[in-house]
Structure formats: C-alpha cells, structure tokens
Design a protein around this nucleic acid. Structure first.
Lengths: 243, 243
DNA sequence: CGCCACTTTGAAACAGTTCAACGTCAGTGG
DNA sequence: CCACTGACGTTGAACTGTTTCAAAGTGGCG
C-alpha cells in the first residue's frame, strides 16, 4: 500500500521516469513519522550530521547560510514533494541551516533505511540520485541569474522556476502557486536588499507580469515573464526517460 | 590492475571513504579512451544528451552558460580527478556547456558502463553520488559568496576552495596550485567584470594574501586569506567516513 | 618584429545599498 | 470594540561598489 504522504514525491519522480510498485513499497516502508515545524523554526542545523532526511509534504522550507555581517543567503527553496536534505544522507556534515518558511510538515527517512534502498534497488537509487542532481541544476541556474542577470530578470526567473516546479507536483492552478514568504526572505534568496526587492517587485507588477500578495504568486503574462527572465526550463529536466 | 589514469580520482574518493579493490577494478574496466581538448574547446554542449561522462585527468575545465547579452557565467571549475559531467549520466539534457580552460585530457566513461556499476556496486554508487553532491555543495558556497560577500572576499573564497581541492588530489605544493585561466574567465566565475577582477586582484596582492601570475596561485598568508574569505572548508567534506 | 590576446589604468555612469521615516495590517489585550 | 503593538511593506535621498567605455601597457609567440 502506498503511503499517501508520499504522493507528491511520487508524482515528481514520475514526471522523469516510471516507478515500479516494489519501489513505491520500499519508499513507503522507509518512511518514518511526520514532523511539524512552525514558521521560522530550524529543521536542521549547520555543522550537524543528521541521521535522517526530511521529505516535505506541506509548506515551504529554505536552505540558508549566515555570513559574518549577519546577512543571510538562501541557496534553495523547497516545496511539498521535495526531499529537503537528501544530500545529508551522504555528506558527513550539513553546510547550511534548513529553516521552515511557513508551517511545515515533513516525513522522516532514516539514513539507515535509505542505505538499505541503495543496496537493494539500483533503479530507485538512480532516481533518488537524480533528485539531488536537480537541486544542483537549480543551484547553477541561480548562479547564472545572480551573476549575469539584472534584479528584475533574476526575480522573474525565480518565479518562472517555481511555477514549473509547483505545477509538476500539482500545486499550481490558474497560473498561480503558493509562495508564502516575506520580501526579506526573497531578498535573501536573490542576494538583494529588501528595499530593492520591493522596488523590483513593483516594476514586475507595473509591467503586468506577475502579482504577489505574500501568499500566492499569480503569473499574468507567462510568455513575457519567460522572456524577461531568459527562462529555459531545460534545467528542470521535465522529460520522461528511463534512467 | 588499477588504471593509472584514475589515480587522482581514487585519491579524491579515498579522502572521504575507502575503496575496495573490486570497486577500483570496476571503475578501471569502465574507463574508456583518453580524449584531448585544446584550450577554449567545448567538451560538451548545452542541450545535448551525452552518452558518456568525462573524468578530467589533466588541465582545467569549466561549466558555463551564456546569457542573451553575450556575457558568460561559469558555474564550476574542474581539475584533474574531477568528474566533469557525471550528472549528465542521469539528467536527460545538459543545462550548460563544458569548456576546456587549458589543454585538457579526460577519460571517457560510457553511461552504459556507469549504469552497470550502479546495478552491481551499491557502495561505489554511493561514492559516485557523493561526488556529485560535493559539486552541489560548492555551488551553494558560490551562491553565498556571490550574494552576500564583497568582491574581495568572494575572490579570496574561490582561492581558498581551490587550494583545498588541489591539495586533496595532490596538485598543491608549497602553498601554491596551478590555476591557468584568464582574468576574464575568473570574472565570469565570480559574476564580476574583468576590470573589477583586475582591481580586486591588485588589492589581494597589496594585502600580501596571494599572488597569481595566470599560471599558478601562491597563497602568501593562509590564515588571513581564510578570514577575509570567511572560509569554512566544511562544505568540501574532507572527512573520512564509511558511506 | 609585429601581432594579438591579455592586463592595467582612468573617468563617468549606474545598479543596487543603506539609512531613516512612514504606511499598513493582523493579532492582542484592556 | 478599539487602542496598541510589532512585523512587514513602501518611499525618498544620499551613497557606494561595480560596470562601462576607452585607451594604453605588457608579453608570448609565429
């Protein structure tokens, strides 16, 4: 019997490849209890060596680092269906904090159980590996956007990325998707100041590209938004291929 | 018999975990011919679906993207012992170009052979997975440095990172390591203009932190360089642990 | 020797930051 | 029920790190 809590995760994997029943069973069996986190709460700590990884099933989380000046940099956002820190399964220590942006629910997977999966299910292992590779691909796009795009293109790019990601797990409808974070948090992801995020957002609204009321992003002109962002979804690898 | 060409790669893996003889044999058997690339030559193309991945054994390569303005952003540098595009094994299409920065030699691994390894060698599979996770960790540090550090700290951070990486494959000596790229290429990695890279470099030299003659970086004051860079090698995961 | 790619310098322009104040709204308690 | 609070969003103005453009210097190589 499939664990219902894993539905969005299965859906995400199935966008890229097929999942056999035995593989779904193995994941369902490996799934531990559901954990809940309040907005702002840390789900995992810099420097720690967790013995479990968390699969997000509700809310939004971010990976972030703090620099000496006290400023923060968010390096990834995660939504339902994302493994937040699957990389912690093999990395000996966490190189960032994981924090809950909203009220979060997550399913625990012990590294022991994941290890067992890698011993017995090579194809499923490749899919889990793939899921960390997608994180890496997103990191690269953020680097390109941060290094070589203007603030407005960078922000547009993030909205494009999240629309496609939300859509691939069934979280988007009517060209909109949940995006419950503050402007300061968005600034920490884009590497900008909160003031400039505010102004950039106004410009995106003025150009009738998107609206955002701190709960939901609505894309008003998908074509032009992608142009402004120079967005090419190739990096999200939404292609069904056997791996 | 171990394939000598893989020595630096084995050495890199052994920094993190042990490698059994059977695993070294499997990799040696999977290794294909050596390919050579001239400086500036593309080793893999954006949008392509390579059926092989390349393990660098000599020279330096970069992954890069080009934006509409014609500017480039480098998202990763690779040195001998690095798998340049192991992620291409599971991603359906490449989201960047791979280009040779200097004269490069690389060993080809067919995806078919890699797939066979994942079917038969779970532990080795975890190590290969780990090697792509390290790339991801480096991406995250680049994001933090790009978003929240000044140009001088960012550049210092890159030098720190490369010193540790070069050292872990035996390429560093006397506090110096090969770094044969142009200032423009460094600018493309840092997300800066070549002019500002030049000035930032002068400042690092003036403060007696590093010297660089476009062939070799020499670290003059390792302690202070790390401070300036806010460098913490935790993300390079140089800890020997069974995985 | 001369070329070409690369590095260095100067000066003006600009994107984004900082600081400080003000506006808005939801939640809380009197 | 309304005043108070605190977090978040918005605005203006001065400032700064970085870019851009343009020109001059350097050095390796055919």
């Amino acid at each position: 019997m499939d664990d219902q809590r894993l539905d969005r995760f299965f859906r995400r994997l199935r966008v890229r490849d097929s999942l056999r029943q035995a593989e779904r069973d193995a994941l369902s069996k490996a799934a531990g209890p559901t954990l809940h986190f309040a907005p702002g709460e840390l789900m995992a700590h810099y420097g720690s060596s967790p013995s479990k990884s968390l699969l997000l099933i509700q809310g939004m989380a971010a990976r972030q680092n703090t620099v000496e000046s006290g400023q923060q940099q968010i390096t990834a956002f995660h939504i339902a269906g994302d493994f937040v820190d699957l990389h912690a399964f093999l990395l000996s220590r966490l190189d960032h904090d994981v924090s809950a942006m909203s009220a979060v629910a997550a399913v625990e997977f012990s590294h022991e159980a994941l290890r067992q999966i890698t011993e017995e299910f090579p194809h499923l292992t490749r899919l889990l590996w793939l899921s960390t590779l997608l994180d890496g691909a997103i990191h690269r796009q953020w680097l390109v956007a941060m290094g070589r795009l203007t603030a407005i293109a960078h922000m547009a790019h993030l909205f494009c990325e999240h629309f496609v990601r939300a859509d691939s797990v069934g979280l988007a409808q009517d060209m909109s998707f949940p995006f419950e974070i503050t402007q300061q948090e968005l600034a920490d992801a884009l590497g900008l100041s909160n003031v400039h995020v505010n102004r950039t957002l106004q410009e995106l609204r003025r150009q009738d590209l998107v609206s955002w009321d701190t709960k939901t992003v609505r894309i008003i002109d998908w074509e032009r938004l992608q142009e402004v962002a120079q967005f090419d979804p190739i990096f999200l690898d939404v292609v069904h291929t056997p791996r």
